[in-house]
Nucleic acid binder design. Structure first.
Length: 547
RNA sequence: GCCCCCGUAGCUCAGGUGGAUAGAGCGACGGUUUCCUAAACCGCAGGCCGGCGGUUCGAGUCCGCCCGGGGGCACCA
């Protein structure tokens, strides 16, 4: 049992002793103002009503009933409207660092997932062009969410789904063909809905070099295959540059070849929730909360994207994923209700909230105070590669993750590129590098720091107590961020903790201090170094030893 | 018209699931270096948390209505 749990248990006993129900759950939080102590509870206020007594009076009674020793607190005081503030002995507080050192790279790991399988689907870009900034946000978000879940004991599969047969791919093939014919002397005729970026020209160029017997691209099927392969390869390179790896690429076409689409449509018809109108087959999704019934099979006999989408999510469930999380742009918002409705209509016991959606808002790229809209390569949008080339992978990751997905995001290229104090990424990495520097200069192998035989009571400086608390809170913090599927919380925590590190480092010295102090501070430095590295790792950002 | 997101400092945004005197980064202003990285630290200024009601001991946070901004409402993906 660690410090907080001990305190909570003791508080519960005290509450019961003064007449509260045995199932009270005392809430404990860090007071915003460190002068208020190390922990605070609002228990007296929440008990006021059921017990019919005044909060401050109850607070006094709770303190009187509390076994200080069992609770592990040095001091308990009543404040404000009825808060009880607790102060811990420095030795008890800082002694928690031993747990950090023992856990090492696993500090922050939890067991809430209990080994169950989770599927995180993200990016899922069709192979019709280079990845744009929005895909970048998805890649950063999805990868970090996957890492967060894995840290909490989920068995995570990172999945990329792509449409390899639809109308957009047809337009891609026709666009490349148009460039081939332009090359052969025809006037340029890119079809309606076609692609205009420079990369189309490059692909046409490459095709002409390889397919010397088909310089005009008359073999459209061959052009299509060639173009898809070229763009898939390009997207892979983009993702690799970003440090994102997928466990599985799922092809929409496989749903047809494996019979999953037919199977699903038959099951839906058997469910009795379908009807035909004007030659098209509908699913009555309004029975399951959608605001409109949806077409599954068009009048011309082909499927809408809706049906394979449902079939795809059935496979996720069948593949044993307890949770399926889809990271997508907010423009997909309209599809969430209908996919869930489709799964419900099957009546197979798939949970109502399956799959879960993490939708993110748009990204605007700013440079020199102006919005950047165009990339040379893609023509109409800014690519992930542009950003990585300009500001580096770590900065792109951080900037795309530092805001809540629900917020529209402004990516300030100038700030991300600046290698100085104003850039939060460097600020955090610098904190890690400085801590590493202590061990380098002191010629101490940080992995030998175990926390054994340390007198924790010497870590009594205010800056040390604040830093210690932040490090000890990390596991709960990560668990909450994972639970909420919100990596930006980690980004903010890192920035705050980095500040505590810099402040402490600036004010207090480690090497050359008297033995007990140096020993304790080395342990603190090691714990902070480990925790920062763990946090950066979750976001896919490097933790450099020196900068 | 309906659905989703957003509205907090000059700018970009946090605010740990309802708590005490609302925070950070950038920008502005002023300081700090014989010392493990000044890529750092300290100080100062800046607010009707879009508005009006409600819930309660207590609301930036929850509920309702309104006003602004963005996105979505296909037999396109």
């Amino acid at each position: 049992m660690n410090g907080v749990e001990q305190l909570r248990a003791a508080l519960t006993r005290a509450a019961v002793a003064i007449g509260a129900s045995p199932d009270v759950q005392p809430g404990l939080e860090r007071p915003r103002d460190p002068a208020h102590g190390d922990w605070a509870t609002n228990l007296a206020m929440t008990l006021a009503k059921p017990l019919g007594r005044k909060p401050r009076e109850l607070a006094d009674a709770l303190i009187a009933a509390l076994d200080r020793h069992d609770a592990g607190v040095a001091e308990a005081t009543v404040a404000g409207p009825g808060f009880i503030n607790f102060r811990l002995d420095t030795a008890d507080l800082a002694g928690g660092l031993a747990r950090v050192l023992a856990a090492g790279t696993a500090w922050g790991h939890g067991t809430g997932g209990t080994g169950r399988a989770a599927n995180v689907e993200f990016v899922s870009a069709n192979p019709t062009g280079p990845l744009h900034v929005g895909h970048g946000r998805q890649a950063a978000l999805g990868d970090a969410i996957a890492a967060l879940l894995a840290s909490q004991g989920w068995k995570v599969t990172r999945e990329f789904y792509y449409n390899d047969a639809g109308a957009q791919i047809q337009n891609l093939a026709l666009s490349v063909q148009a460039r081939l014919r332009e090359r052969a002397g025809d006037p340029l005729a890119i079809p309606e809905g076609g692609y205009h970026g420079a990369y189309i020209k490059d692909i046409a160029e490459a095709y002409a070099g390889e397919a010397t017997d088909d310089p005009r691209g008359d073999d459209l099927e061959r052009v299509r295959t060639f173009a898809v392969r070229a763009l898939r390869n390009e997207q892979d390179l983009d993702l690799r540059a970003f440090g994102v790896r997928f466990d599985r690429y799922f092809l929409e076409s496989s749903l047809y070849t494996d019979g999953k689409v037919e199977e699903t449509i038959a099951a839906l018809q058997a469910s009795g929730h379908t009807f035909e109108d004007d030659g098209a087959l509908y699913l009555r999704t309004t029975d399951f909360g959608d605001d409109k019934d949806r077409v599954m099979r068009k009048r011309d006999g082909t499927m809408t994207y809706f049906l394979p989408d449902v079939a795809y999510h059935v496979t996720k469930f069948e593949r044993g994923f307890t949770r399926a999380i889809n990271v997508q742009g907010a423009d997909h918002h309209g599809t969430t209700a209908r996919v869930r409705a489709g799964l419900q209509a099957l009546g197979r016991g798939i949970p109502e909230g399956y799959p879960e959606y993490v939708l993110h808002q748009m990204v605007t790229v700013m440079r020199g105070g102006e919005e950047v809209k165009i990339s040379k390569r893609a023509g109409s949008y800014v690519t992930v590669r542009d950003l990585i080339d300009e500001v580096g992978r770590d900065a792109v990751r951080y900037f795309l993750l530092m805001r809540k997905g629900d917020s529209q995001l402004v990516f300030d290229v100038d700030l991300a590129r600046s290698q100085s104090e104003e850039n939060p990424v460097y600020y955090i990495q610098m904190a890690h590098a400085r801590l590493s520097g202590i061990f380098r200069v002191g010629e101490i192998d940080p992995t030998t720091i175990t926390g054994a035989a340390v007198d924790w009571s010497v870590l009594d400086q205010p800056e040390e107590r604040e830093l210690v608390k932040s490090l000890l809170d990390w596991p709960d913090f990560v668990a909450a961020a994972a639970d909420a599927l919100e990596p930006h919380r980690v980004a903010n925590w890192l920035l705050e903790t980095a500040r505590l590190v810099h402040t402490w480092y600036h004010k207090h010295h480690v090497l050359g201090e008297a033995e007990p102090v140096m020993r304790a501070r080395l342990a603190l430095a090691r714990a902070a170094q480990l925790t920062l590295a763990n946090g950066l790792g979750l976001l896919g950002i490097s933790a450099p030893e020196r900068m």
